[in-house]
């Protein structure tokens, strides 16, 4: 995971600032050609998990093209996102195999439980929900990815348990931390 668990909003911005300056150096390794636009955007997204406004401007300046041109390309492709994902990005597969096994109800259930819509992130940046078209495990449909793990044979009733598990895990860690602090 890129982020330390319980950073505040301001800390996050500091981390981002630092990464952004790293990225500014990384970009220079790419040749200044239009063909490198998508690879550069991919590199930024890999580091930051999304494309903040500053980074887009940085790329435009480096490749000497208009910012709107960069936005044009970035918004065309589904891979790129413009808001930060959660600590546990939830990707609900809505491919054909998953669809015929009721994936849309699972997506809805996540939306309802987390009180956000697909494409959004919870205010505490813990979870985000996205839809994807086939993660390539159709035989295990319906499938949802949470972080890098694939949850196979999903069911609407499993949703609450999954979310709860992450919440409990977090609480346990916090308690552990508090205990350690008092011990010192």
């Amino acid at each position: 995971m890129l982020w330390e668990r319980d950073l505040t909003q301001e800390d996050l911005n500091k981390v981002e600032q630092k990464l952004l300056s790293e990225i500014e150096n990384n970009i220079k390794e790419y040749e200044k050609s239009r063909g490198n636009l998508i690879p550069i955007l991919q590199m930024i997204q890999e580091k930051l998990k999304y494309l903040p406004k500053d980074s887009i401007e940085m790329v435009a300046k480096y490749l000497e093209i208009n910012t709107c041109e960069v936005y044009g390309v970035a918004t065309f492709y589904n891979q790129f996102r413009f808001n930060p994902p959660g600590n546990h990005p939830i990707k609900v597969c809505l491919g054909t195999a998953c669809h015929v096994k009721g994936a849309d109800i699972i997506l809805e259930n996540f939306e309802r439980k987390l009180e956000i819509l697909e494409g959004e992130t919870t205010p505490d940046r813990e979870f985000s929900i996205d839809r994807v078209a086939c993660v390539g495990c159709c035989a295990l449909a319906p499938v949802t990815m949470i972080g890098d793990t694939v949850q196979s044979h999903m069911a609407p009733s499993k949703v609450e348990g999954l979310i709860l598990r992450f919440k409990i895990e977090k609480e346990m860690q916090e308690r552990e931390k508090a205990k350690n602090e008092t011990a010192i």
């Binding site: 491919g95 078209a133 086939c134 495990c137």
Partner: peptide, 10 residues
């Protein structure tokens, strides 16, 4: 391989 439901190329 963009077809949502095919994965043989992968």
């Amino acid at each position: 391989e963009g077809d949502p439901g095919a994965y043989m190329d992968r």
